[in-house]
Design a protein around this nucleic acid. Structure first.
Lengths: 340, 340
DNA sequence: AGAGCGTTCCAAAGCGCTTTGGCTGACTTG
DNA sequence: CAAGTCAGCCAAAGCGCTTTGGAACGCTCT
């Protein structure tokens, strides 16, 4: 059933039927009802390929997926996706994942924009002066950044959480508990979120006249193993930290293991706070010692990004609005006063 | 730059240019070279929307993503995706994720097929008599199943791992070590992989004249918390198992925690084997006691599925070929002789 | 009554590609 | 030498939608 057949059986022109269906004003209410009715009764659905060719709109949102033999997709991605899917489903939006060589995403962005494959894209894990942002910005495709960049000479729409504030609060709590030697096990230092977290911690320390020594900060990709290694190295130094703030639950698993291996205890010898993106399959309250966390649901962020992308596509949202979500600090058993 | 312009500047018809570019034989080699050359020089890329409308082919592969407020996307998904992306990137295949209500995926399958949104789909986590398989089979879209169904009256192409064999081997090892009371902490019992794993274990036990009591088998979604709960319940019974086989590393985390909470040790009081899908961020050798595993890279499976989908799209693969990968049994410190 | 206007509809021209059906001219073949 | 073959090219007809530029009609207003 296509437009031609439908319009023929209604004795109307394709134009009128098309307009009726798409809510244009130059159709009488009666005709519109008649058309809508017939369309529903015959299960007419406009062919998206044809619509696409005519309008250039695809009804899909895009994501360039960095891949490569040595590139691992972040497990956070799947939670973000859950949220995105929640929203997208209700609006019949599909998501196109365009795999790209992690060393050359630019080509892929150009391709999907030139081909008009998607109506909007989102960008995640931005870095300072991230070239992808400059690119999509000049290419003129609607986009939203999940996270923030820095040092760009233009504004852009984003959704981020208050990483700096979160880690500032975490550090402040530890300082109030008397800790003097804090350490940070962070994510990839080239990504903005890690920079913000470090900044937040430094700011809290500075307020107490302390600093974060180079030796007390580790930037690694977020695996259990890296958490373990980083913690071991920190704890085996001559002046080991009495508190660690850690950028992910997965790394925190490694930290806990390292603490055990060294015969230490949490929170007796070490206080631990980690950032929790709220995974259904790994919860901080279920750690051997319930873990204090800075918490923010990455899934909700996914849903919100989808919502805003949809708004941008339909022209409801414009400009470079940035949105920063506060982060909860949830105190559980893994923090205590500094050992004497 | 479109076909019309290109053909005009070559003083050729659109037909000839199109044929030259798409490798049709009725074009002289010289002309073809000239066309190819000009196309490359001017960076001509056929408009996919137009091609799509004309051919009905989209150059994308699809996946229906079950979503819903209470539906969590499996973290395995992201690893599978990594593999899929690895292959897809090299072939400029994009992946379309169509979010669907988890209770009604059928509508979405029908939609993406009717709309010709994708050239092929893959289906994961199949169940016995899975209606999705019957559906895509009758809809006539090329597809591959990651996993297997059962009790269907037609054959279909799939890629699966030998779950039954893997768990058979794991159980056999434990039996050889003198264990008599084995338990299984399995994934969702409605999915075929879980059924196969249980079957494998039962077969091994039966060969030793033993059985797997209903109380010694738990089917839960794969979270750390569920692993913990299941293990506690098993270990607090009157005749606790001396060995557990577990369907995922994430649940194994919970098992380890439960063992600790109960003041028991691995492998002294309990031997543990888990299935490892090979996540980069959580490795069995890094468990407090290195974990014995049945191992199969889900990432490689993703790449292979993409490869076969591409082959099906281009007509290189046909029929209902099933492919079953063997699974390694990797013995590490978490298994030992049964306690006396 | 005739001009002017808004409403409601339509025919036809795209969008940029693939593919059908032919046409031309050179080359074999009996 | 006429008929047949074949390589190599082309014009035009789709694919199914949106959108442009009217046209027809019934009103109101002077």
């Amino acid at each position: 059933m296509n437009l031609k057949q439908l319009s023929h059986m209604l004795s109307l022109s394709q134009t009128t039927v098309s307009r009726a269906l798409n809510g244009y004003p130059e159709v009488s209410e009666e005709t519109r009802r008649r058309v809508m009715d017939a369309a529903k009764r015959h299960g007419y659905r406009p062919n998206p390929s044809a619509r696409r060719l005519a309008t250039g709109k695809s009804g899909m949102i895009g994501y360039v997926l960095p891949t490569g033999a040595s590139v691992d997709i972040d497990p956070h991605f799947v939670e973000f996706l859950s949220g995105l899917g929640d929203y997208a489903r209700a609006h019949e939006l599909d998501l196109v994942l365009s795999p790209a060589d992690a060393d050359d995403e630019e080509t892929t962005y150009r391709r999907i924009v030139a081909n008009r494959q998607v109506d909007a894209v989102y960008i995640s894990s931005p870095r300072p002066a991230d070239r992808r942002l400059a690119l999509v910005n000049t290419l003129g495709i609607p986009f939203i950044v999940h996270g923030r960049s820095e040092g760009l000479d233009f504004d852009y729409p984003y959704l981020d959480i208050d990483n700096e504030g979160a880690f500032h609060e975490a550090a402040r709590l530890l300082l109030q508990l008397g800790h003097k030697r804090l350490a940070l096990i962070n994510g990839n230092e080239r990504e903005t979120f890690a920079i913000h977290r470090e900044r937040g911690m430094r700011r809290a320390l500075a307020a107490s006249g302390l600093t974060l020594g180079e030796r007390h900060i580790r930037s690694v990709t977020m695996t259990e193993e890296n958490g373990y290694r980083a913690a071991r190295r920190l704890l085996e130094e001559s002046d080991p930290p009495t508190a660690i703030v850690c950028s992910s639950l997965i790394m925190a698993l490694g930290v806990v293991r390292a603490v055990r291996d060294l015969g230490l205890t949490i929170p007796g010898d070490l206080s631990l706070v980690a950032h929790d993106d709220v995974f259904p399959w790994l919860r901080p309250e279920n750690f051997p010692v319930p873990l204090s966390t800075t918490r923010s649901s990455i899934r909700l962020a996914g849903a919100r990004v989808a919502e805003r992308l949809a708004a941008r596509i339909s022209g409801l949202e414009e400009g470079a609005r940035g949105e920063v979500w506060p982060v909860d600090l949830v105190v559980r058993g893994s923090v205590a006063g500094a050992p004497v």
